[in-house]
Design a protein around this nucleic acid. Structure first.
Length: 891
RNA sequence: GGAACGGUAGCUCAGCCGGGAUGAGCGUUCGCCUCACACGCGAGAGGUCACGGGUUCGAUCCCCGUCCGUUCCACCA
């Protein structure tokens, strides 16, 4: 049984071997089993273009902890994995890769390009999956899905057709956000506002006089950040109650360059206080102007091509880039005397979150999802608590979005994605939405139809993920059994993109919430608190961390000391601390293995003759089991793992193992020896189980390989609180000894006594119970307190001068160290102690003298305070006695 | 403009749904290579819990205000 084990735990190699074994044994696989309760998590599907970053590492660590915990608790735990086609992200990458080979997207044509995308997916789609495995993720890989696999495609088509039929998906001309580089529309959620330094150009348009001539004296002045849009102006607006312009409403101004006369309209949208109180109106290129235009039936003049160059509506500026046109227009306005001044101006500019290009709002015919009705059940579910958001404050962010929701633009002018199942009749233009190409046009009967060239927003398919992965639209057994899922774990940054859309899709398609709980986590930032980003180059590669420190260390680091929804900082020293803990666990186990009997046999059941320290640690373990389980059920994973960590290190290793050593080295008492071994083994195993969800590899390595056990820890039973492990009396007794040991150590330390130098300890206590406790535990007490001999007595009989005294509430310990005794130093030490006790007694007395406290505070608080006071009083008496004697010596 | 989060030991952060700050890791001081572990052991030092009010017998915790930091939403042209 005894074998050579490395002095330090080295995760390299071990982790891969263990993971492979888990996979081979099919431990991650879940099947419908009505004898068990399901527990389901669907993975936020990583992009196929993705590389594992710290955000993924955190997200998947949390999911793995939950799924492993529930699996051990006996749930039928399914972690449904898969990847996302990531429409635009992938398309951009493929285009870039092709360009390096000198190939343009259009050269290949749609079919050819899509082939390249699928090649890409084949090559890189598995990469992130393998990286998730390195982390230890216990996903059911047999069920791996892809947002563009056959089933998901079917789900997308089904939803599109159903919602179209219901009138909730429609095609319309609306103002949308356009990316001139990606040449596609994007949704509101994909627009990122960035503060930029720009200019505010103050411009004036001449008034058209009554006789139709262009005035040379009367102008209407306004300001704009985008002068080039004036080419598309179809009005200027003032506030209806603005006296300055009251007489001008209904008249016209002259628009230079395009030589157009445009009306002055009155609209409350205008803020009289801002600038001159005049706004130019460009309905085709500004969302607010668009609305003004609708109200006043203004023409919408699009002045831009898809690449943001000016189109033929821009007259002589046709063909110019938007910024070039801007420059030119400003210059010419100045020459015409229509430029009043230029002001520096900092404002927010909408950019495309993928490529950073400034988006252009413009009018396009696109497909939209009507949101007003769809969102209602999603709001209700959160309001009524059917879906719980953790932390709760995320609800405010959620409602902020749902309350101001706008229709969702879902069509994209991209090729990689789900092609919109709409077909146009080449003859009559009829639109048919159907799962597949109709034989002929239902209106004119001709057989020439063309499918809509656009694809869907990538989030359209992700929104269906919780049920499409389980087989929907088929009514599969999996779907009935595993849906709704239990927990969704994700970052708060995709609450709008994904979480909300899954919720309303779940209600709409399944008639039920997609998950009960959403556990949000924050961002992993760098050591300086900055966001990790490619451009900053401050990203930390989790795979490198795994290589250097092990997956367990990384996982522990990511979950320790972090509360839901809060951002955290990555730091190397924290990973090192985690690695050190893995090593600590390893060595504690190594110690136990080294002391196992040759045949490895220890009793299964609790043996007779457990000593107080055995009962103490068992009781402590029992409490940790209860607390940790409670914390985990509340998703307080950081707190839970802290408790496991502290128990293993501070209680089990630092105290219990040290207490038990004499019994292991001196095997004279067989019964005591066996009791110690059984306790060590029982508490170690239980602790490993509690730790397993967090640190799956090291716990498995010890549980299986080191302890030579067939069955994996990951399918073992989660510990439960047991009455037979509950020993409150021993807890109290051992705590008393610990306190004494610590006080003696401190006193010796202050005297500069080396630990190797042992001295006699005389413990004086009138309390017979106290003396009995120390008598029973003298074996380890002597060792821990560096006592050569422990003498117990009821009074100070026979204690001579030259002893260091350590005053405790229940006893006083005397250490004869005549040669080292410095009376003045002793007096100083005791005086300090006296001062501390005086402070405590004052506080306590103050509270207990306060009649309002006595009359209003709960009884248990009062009792607790009285107990404290008594304890301090006793200790104070001892300190004063000792001080008196020492002072007598000096006289 | 609206909102949220954070301000606790030198650093990074837990915690506190009102009752002595025995908080954690790292760092630091002193002593130890003590037969599991120096990725370690023992013992310390270190905090007006941002500031000002209020509620309360009692506030680091609840309420209001202020300052500082971060973020989200809106986008006044």
């Amino acid at each position: 049984m005894q074998r050579e084990l490395a002095k330090t735990y080295d995760p390299q190699g071990i982790e891969d071997r263990i993971y492979k074994n888990w996979e081979e044994k099919k431990y991650f696989h879940a099947e419908v089993d009505h004898s068990k309760t399901p527990f389901t998590i669907v993975i936020p599907p990583p992009n196929i273009t993705g590389q594992l970053h710290m955000g993924h590492a955190l997200d998947n660590t949390l999911q793995d902890i939950l799924i492993r915990y529930k699996r051990m608790q006996g749930y039928n735990a399914l972690w449904q994995p898969g990847t996302d086609h990531a429409s635009i992200a992938t398309e951009v990458k493929v285009i870039d890769a092709l360009r390096e080979q000198g190939i343009e997207k259009d050269d290949l044509g749609r079919e050819g390009f899509l082939e390249k995308c699928w090649d890409w997916r084949k090559e890189y789609g598995g990469r992130i999956v393998n990286q998730l495995k390195k982390l230890g993720s216990s996903c059911d890989w047999d069920r791996e899905r892809f947002t563009m696999d056959e089933g998901c495609n079917k789900a997308v088509t089904e939803v599109f057709c159903k919602m179209h039929e219901k009138g909730w998906i429609y095609k319309g001309s609306r103002i949308i956000n356009w990316c001139p580089v990606c040449k596609t529309s994007i949704s509101d959620a994909e627009v990122q506002y960035e503060e930029q330094n720009g200019h505010f150009w103050h411009i004036k348009y001449p008034l058209i006089e009554e006789d139709g001539s262009i005035s040379t004296t009367r102008f209407l002045e306004f300001a704009t950040t985008r002068p080039e849009t004036m080419l598309g102006d179809t009005a200027v607006a003032v506030h209806p109650e603005d006296e300055r312009y009251a007489d001008l409403i209904g008249r016209k101004v002259w628009l230079p360059f395009v030589d157009r006369q445009i009306p002055i309209v009155a609209d409350t949208y205008v803020d009289r206080e801002f600038g001159t109180g005049v706004v130019k109106i460009t309905p085709a290129h500004d969302p607010n102007d668009f609305e003004v235009g609708q109200r006043h039936h203004l023409p919408e003049i699009n002045i831009m091509n898809d690449d943001a160059t000016i189109n033929k509506n821009g007259g002589k500026f046709e063909g110019m880039d938007r910024y070039e046109a801007r420059k030119q227009i400003v210059k010419e306005l100045e020459e015409m005397g229509l430029l009043v001044r230029i002001e520096d101006y900092t404002h927010n500019v909408g950019t495309h979150d993928r490529c950073g290009t400034t988006v252009e709002p413009l009018i396009k015919k696109q497909w939209f999802v009507r949101m007003d009705e769809l969102i209602k059940p999603a709001v209700k579910a959160v309001k009524e608590g059917d879906i719980q958001l953790i932390p709760k404050r995320m609800e405010k962010i959620y409602y902020n979005w749902t309350d101001n929701i706008r229709d969702w633009c879902i069509s994209r002018q991209l090729w990689w994605g789900h092609r919109i199942p709409a077909y146009y009749c080449d003859e009559c233009g009829e639109i048919v939405v159907a799962p597949s190409m109709p034989e002929k046009c239902p209106k004119c009967g001709c057989s020439h139809l063309t499918q809509d060239p656009d694809t869907l927003d990538t989030w359209f398919s992700s929104a269906l993920w919780p049920f499409s992965t389980l087989g929907w639209p088929e009514q599969t057994e999996d779907l009935k059994y595993f849906y709704p899922t239990d927990v969704l774990v994700t970052g708060y940054d995709i609450i709008f993109f994904w979480v909300i859309r899954m919720i309303f899709s779940g209600f709409e398609q399944m008639g039920e919430r997609p998950f009960r709980t959403v556990l949000f986590h924050g961002l992993v930032r760098d050591e300086l608190g900055r966001k990790m980003s490619k451009s900053l180059g401050n990203g930390i590669d989790p795979l490198q961390v795994i290589k250097d420190y092990g997956a367990d260390a990384l996982r522990l680091t990511l979950v320790t000391g972090n509360a839901p929804g809060n951002d955290m900082r990555y730091s190397k020293t924290r990973v090192e601390a985690s690695r050190n803990f893995a090593n600590k666990v390893w060595n504690a186990s190594r110690f136990i293995m080294m002391n196992m009997p040759e045949d490895g046999q220890i009793p299964d059941q609790m043996p007779e003759g457990l000593l107080p320290e055995d009962k103490w640690i068992l009781s402590g373990f029992n409490n940790v089991v209860r607390d940790v389980t409670e914390n985990m059920d509340k998703f307080e994973l950081g707190i839970a793992v802290q408790k496991v960590h502290d128990f293993i290190w501070d209680e089990f290793c630092d105290w219990y193992i040290e207490m038990v050593k004499p019994r292991l080295y001196e095997t004279a008492d067989e019964k005591s020896h066996t009791a110690a071994l059984w306790t060590l083994q029982t508490v170690l195993q239980g602790s490993l189980k509690l730790l397993h969800p967090y640190m799956p590899f090291v716990t498995e390595e010890i549980f299986c390989t080191v302890q030579d056990r067939e069955e994996s820890i990951m399918i073992s039973d989660w510990p439960v609180w047991k009455e037979e492990y509950n020993f409150p009396a021993e807890e109290e007794a051992i705590e008393m000894i610990k306190e004494t040991v610590r006080a003696i150590r401190t006193a010796r330390n202050e005297r500069g006594v080396a630990p190797s130098r042992k001295a006699k300890v005389i413990l004086v206590s009138e309390d017979e119970k106290v003396r009995r406790i120390f008598e029973e535990d003298r074996l380890f007490f002597e060792r821990l307190a560096s006592a050569s001999d422990l003498v117990l007595q009821a009074d100070k009989e026979g204690i001579g001068e030259g002893t260091v005294s350590v005053v405790l509430p229940f006893a006083t310990a005397f250490i004869p160290l005549a040669d080292l005794l410095d009376v003045q130093a002793e007096i100083a030490r005791l005086t300090k102690e006296k001062k501390r006790l005086e402070g405590e007694l004052k506080r306590s007395a103050g509270m207990l003298r306060n009649e309002k406290f006595l009359s209003k505070a709960p009884a248990d608080k009062i009792a607790a305070e009285k107990e404290k006071q008594q304890k301090y009083t006793q200790q104070m008496e001892g300190v004063l006695r000792e001080l008196e004697e020492l002072q007598a010596l000096t006289n």
